[in-house]
Amino acid sequence: MKPTRAVPVSGPDPARSLVGRFLATRDERAFRDLYRAATPRLWAFALRLAGGRAGEAEELVQECWARAVERLDRFRGDSAFASWLGGILVNCWRESWRELRWIADEEPPGEPPSPGTPPDPASRLDLESALARLPEGSRAVLLLHDVEGMTHAEIGDRLGIAAGTSKSRLFAARRAMARRLDTKIGGPG
């Protein structure tokens, strides 16, 4: 089956020239241009990682940008700028959860979601709500895999877990999502 969610970079990355312009001047206006180009995606990622808690997401984005600008001259353009930035965001998020046992908060894996669980009836708000209610670690794996298009090996590297653990968390996350969406759509109450 053809992959549907991997996000390969095709064509020039528009953020790259903005990065170059900012590095040449370190000017506020150049940064604001870069910020406006890259933050809508970063914000969506941060808000979902934070389980919909806007205050936490704002702190994540602020710290992410601070760290990104600190090391911006090391951005080589091997990956899309959004992916590079997303990696820094995940690191910020991991640090914020280091003391909260986010690694051990998983639901046990059970039956997999039925193939092709149709998401169509669920509204976006239902999806966001179901996503926000996932355990932190499962939510991160699901986002990195299904939205960011990362492999389990990449996720494992990013989150400091085994690739097999990433896979089992994805399995559990999808199952929990399907259960919650089914309940929301057609379940009792």
């Binding site: 089956m1 053809k2 992959p3 549907t4 969610r5 991997a6 969506a44 979902r48 193939p115 092709g116 669980t117 998401p119 169509d120 669920a122 976006r124 999806l127 966001e128 179901a130 996503l131 699901l142 986002l143 895999h145 299904d146 939205v147 298009g149 492999t151 896979k167 994805l170 399995f171 999808r174 999502m177 399907a178 969406l181």
Partner: peptide, 12 residues
């Protein structure tokens, strides 16, 4: 799993 549809495909 990457080929399977995900509910998150609907999210912006």
């Amino acid at each position: 799993e990457r080929g399977a549809p995900s509910p998150l495909d609907l999210l912006p």
